[in-house]
Design a protein around this nucleic acid. Structure first.
Length: 800
DNA sequence: GAGTTTGAAACT
DNA sequence: CAGTTTCAAACTC
């Protein structure tokens, strides 16, 4: 993709350069070229590289990728999507839009003619107030992304005629566009073109592209909703019809879309608007003449839109519209038209936002540039955010991040992001690296991961994320999301499931706890409840931040480790400390240990099992058959045996069942690929070699991994059943040392064995760490780490 | 999808 | 600290 596009671009550019128009343009705005180029480079590599890797799932095809890109870009600029997915056609169209935007920026003269278009294209949505920079950047990026000759056009566009000719030439170069466009272009289109020419818009060139775009767009729309695409086409056709009709149809459609998209809309009306503009340049052109009429209807439509949108979004929309209005009536029309797209756009936006948030968090992430752009965009788009600071965004997102981590622990990337976002260092990177390192080079992986994460997030966002973002930023938005949730929690869940890993994110179903107790998984994990949650009377939302924090404090006062990850995985081993000794000690273990009596620690009822860790001495479980490690094993040899026997003797009947299950599990375990069979942790992403992370998804509470790949090493010298050993990836933590609650990791000391063990082995509940941790400063440090990593809600509170 | 089982969390 | 109750997830049908 990249190479061909780039090549194409290169050729057209040369042509343009020759043209006087090009020179003129350059003289007008030197800025453009620089930015565009710059952006392009950064953006393309990232997206493209990442995309393929990201979508491991079969269904992810170029199309989807393109779409995803679009979403991202849409925020930024929809172009990348097109480029990847559809290739030249789309690119050309978008490129045209871009051109228009650029031109607008470059020359005031053009602006007048362009204003309508421009506004339609991008500015209108975002609001005129937004910096021209963004507009420019976006277009540029888009162009480049497309890799199509479009990139050049913008400069060409400087002169209308030149633009048109250039466009035509480009279209020819572009290939399909011309043919399709010619076919598609109807008399109406011609009319539009003529109008465009009058206006001096370069849109003309776009028409052909536009047509192709429409088709492409339809595809895109289909992606989200087939109906939308159809509607969109119809709308385009109708665009010729009287405005009232058009507006009404649009409105209805828009409303429907809004309803459907719900979250998406909420996320960012403005963003969508931008996209619309870009995407619908042709329609705009055609409507140019109609714009005036549209303006009249504009108010009404705006109202309708507002209705359709959530309160917050409506506000944004209004502001955007208002700003746009000055520009041209077209903006409004575009908005409406764009509405259909909006759905997609919204999603895109949402995804972007999440991405942005993540990206912003990731100071070092590769995507920074693109992300930053996006972030800027988002900020602009989302006026609501009070501070607008990255920190702010992050904070709100933390909860989400945590969720994502939990869910994505599978995904290396996500983990990373989260850790980064929280600012606390969760370390994941090492784990990911370790995981990947064996098979892949780290950097490539990183990229792919980052990209993947973004894509995944997009998906997640599409489903979940949006609400989160908004939640953070806006209470009202949050409410809306809730409503949606309530409406169809199942749907949400399904979506999540579809997303694949999204399932990893746990959603609660609390009914009586108000999600303010540890019963609530979300609350326990330190994250706010989000859409997918089907909880009732939920107070675990940003809106109730105060309540949440207060409750949390209360709980923490009772048990300081209440919000600490239940399962701690530590493995300093790998890279960090050369000491193999460190490896020996168990890598992961349940913070408190389980108290299972009937499940034999073979079901998820058992927190140890759920967490993918073996039971340890600290567990009070009876008849432990934990596939990840029995309590007995963990204990020093003699003791264990005794315990085991006891349990066995007493509970033979139970054991039988357990054994059967265990056998199955064992088999599964033995299969490296299967990883943890029973454990949900592993699940998705078998493709990725992530042993751990993937599994790690904390079932309930979060798991903390301190070291890079604790699981891998886990050597359990001490006794772990062969079966367990067989599980390579998984950590089997040796329980050799009876660490009561805190894992070695927390202790910080490499020597787990240090005879710490204080408490009675049986004692289930971890006593408040005070004593335990306090012992050594190193421990304290470790503990801090844990807390930080888990600071679930801390993020909520404004960090200073 | 509804009901049951299970064990952690919360309460006394 | 131990026992009981509450709660929601996990599980089963």
């Amino acid at each position: 993709m990249d190479t061909p596009e780039k090549n194409q671009i290169g050729t057209p550019i040369s042509k343009f350069e020759d043209s006087p128009v090009f020179n003129y343009i350059n003289s007008l705005s030197p800025i453009k070229p620089v930015k565009s180029i710059h952006i392009t480079q950064t953006f393309n590599p990232l997206n493209f590289a990442s995309l393929p890797s990201v979508f491991t799932s079969p269904h992810v095809n170029s199309h989807k990728e393109s779409r995803f890109l679009k979403r991202k870009t849409c925020l930024d600029g929809s172009k990348p999507e097109f480029s990847s997915g559809n290739g030249n056609k789309i690119c050309t169209n978008e490129g045209i839009g871009m051109d228009g935007a650029q031109l607008f920026v470059n020359s005031a003269e053009l602006q007048e003619t362009f204003d309508p278009e421009v506004s339609l294209g991008e500015n209108s949505v975002q609001a005129s107030t937004e910096h021209s920079k963004f507009v420019i950047e976006l277009p540029c990026t888009l162009k480049y992304d497309c890799g199509s000759p479009d990139c050049d056009p913008p400069p060409l566009c400087g002169t209308e005629t030149g633009c048109v000719s250039d466009l035509v030439g480009k279209s020819a170069l572009l290939v399909q566009n011309d043919q399709e466009a010619s076919k598609k272009v109807s008399s109406e289109d011609e009319m539009h073109l003529s109008e465009m020419c009058r206006t001096g818009q370069k849109i003309e060139g776009m028409e052909g592209d536009w047509e192709s775009l429409i088709s492409d767009v339809s595809d895109l729309l289909i992606f989200t909703s087939p109906t939308d695409s159809e509607a969109f086409k119809e709308l385009i056709e109708k665009s010729m019809d009287p405005m009232t009709r058009f507006s009404t149809s649009l409105m209805s459609q828009l409303q429907q879309i809004d309803i459907n998209d719900e979250q998406m809309q909420i996320v960012d009306p403005t963003g969508s608007g931008k996209q619309h503009e870009i995407n619908n340049p042709s329609a705009e052109t055609g409507e140019a003449s109609e714009l005036q009429e549209i303006e009249q209807t504009k108010d009404a439509t705006a109202d309708n839109l507002n209705k359709g949108m959530s309160s917050n979004t409506s506000e944004q929309m209004n502001s955007g519209v208002a700003t746009c209005i000055p520009y041209a009536s077209k903006a409004v029309s575009n908005l409406y038209r764009g509405m259909r797209r909006r759905c997609l756009d919204f999603e895109m936006v949402g995804a972007h936002r999440k991405n942005l948030g993540d990206a912003s968090n990731l100071s070092s992430s590769m995507l920074l540039q693109s992300d930053e752009k996006i972030a800027c965009y988002d900020k602009q788009l989302v006026p609501i955010k009070p501070s607008g600071d990255s920190s702010r965004c992050i904070l709100p997102g933390i909860g989400l991040h945590l969720n994502a981590l939990a869910t994505n622990s599978k995904d290396h990337k996500n983990v990373k992001h989260e850790s980064l976002s929280s600012g606390k260092q969760l370390y994941l990177p090492s784990s990911t690296a370790s995981l990947n390192s064996p098979t892949n080079s780290q950097e490539p992986l990183r990229i792919s991961l980052t990209s993947v994460s973004s894509s995944e997030r997009d998906t997640e966002l599409a489903e979940n994320g949006i609400s989160h973002v908004e939640d953070v930023s806006q209470g009202s938005a949050y409410l809306v999301s809730d409503e949606f949730n309530q409406n169809s929690p199942k749907k949400k869940r399904r979506r999540l499931e579809h997303a694949g890993e999204s399932e990893s994110c746990k959603r609660c179903n609390c009914k009586k706890s108000k999600c303010l107790k540890l019963y609530c998984e979300c609350f326990a994990a330190g994250v706010y409840c989000i859409e997918p949650c089907s909880c009732q009377e939920c107070f675990n939302k940003p809106i109730h931040e105060d309540t949440v924090l207060a409750t949390r404090k209360q709980i923490e006062s009772r048990n300081p480790l209440a919000f600490a990850p239940k399962v701690i995985r530590s493995s300093e081993s790998v890279t960090e400390i050369g000491d193999e000794s460190s490896k020996t000690p168990a890598s992961a273990r349940h913070k408190r240990g389980c108290n299972c009596k009937k499940s034999n620690c073979l079901k998820k009822y058992c927190e140890c099992y759920q967490g993918g860790v073996g039971c340890s001495i600290g567990c009070r479980c009876e008849g432990c058959k934990n596939a990840f490690g029995r309590k007995d094993e963990s204990a020093p040899m003699g003791v264990e045996a005794d315990q085991e026997e006891e349990t066995d003797a007493c509970e033979n009947s139970v054991m039988d069942k357990a054994l059967q299950k265990s056998d199955n599990q064992n088999n599964e375990e033995q299969n490296p690929a299967s990883t943890l069979p029973t454990t949900p942790l592993r699940l998705s992403r078998p493709a990725l070699p992530l042993p751990f992370s993937s599994n790690c998804k904390p079932p309930r509470s979060s798991f903390l991994t301190v070291g890079s790949s604790s699981g891998l090493y886990t050597s359990q010298k001490f006794g772990k059943p062969n079966i367990l050993r067989s599980l390579p990836k998984f950590e089997r933590h040796s329980k050799t040392v009876p660490e009561d609650e805190m894992p070695e990791i927390l202790r910080g000391n490499t020597s787990p064995n240090t005879g710490i063990k204080s408490a009675s082995p049986n004692r289930k509940r971890v006593s408040p760490p005070h004593s335990g941790f306090g012992s050594s400063p190193s421990r304290r440090s470790g503990r801090k780490l844990i807390l930080q990593s888990i600071p679930s809600f801390p993020s909520l509170t404004p960090k200073h």
